[in-house]
Amino acid sequence: MTTAEEQLQLIERMIKQSQQKFSDNGKFYLLWGWVALSASLIHYALLGFTDFSMPYLVWIILMPLAGIASSIMGKRQSKQADHTLYSDKVMPYLWAGCTISMLILIVLGYKLTWNIVYPLLLIIWAIGLFSSGALIRFKPLMYGAVLNWILAIFAFFVAFDVQLLLIACSMLFSYLVPGYMLQAQARRDAA
């Protein structure tokens, strides 16, 4: 180590190295993606092909279970992580904010109509995805957010059962595809 240029290069290389490590391995996007994809398709099937009077029960059962699983995974991940980015601290607050907004919409949804509630949920998810993508500098999440905004606009003009299919589509391309990409990236980093 002799010259100022070499010193600066070392600093730049180390900073780049630390920032390029994805601490997000996509687990949460995969969990919520699979749960909400299943819930929306089951809801759609119960609504269209059975006489079951409370098809929405699938959400009431699956979402809290996913919430519990998510919180256990979060605690375990933060204990085991070998490094913590500043964005890792912001992310739980961002998604907690989205969840609180969603819960308010769901609980008070009866004051609106469900045809309005579901497009609004898509918009809230888009905010979460867009911000998360920017925080961890992962564009597929941001593209997923744009898709959610487009689907939300469509959703305002279609029937409730079609909205369920739009949610399934959102889960597939906005959560599961980026989730698997993040998982692959994390495996490459670990290798």
Binding site: M14, Q17, S18, D82, T84, Y86
Partner: peptide, 9 residues
């Protein structure tokens, strides 16, 4: 340099 961009490691 590694720690400057991280909360902890």
């Amino acid at each position: 340099s590694l720690l400057i961009g991280l909360e902890k490691a």
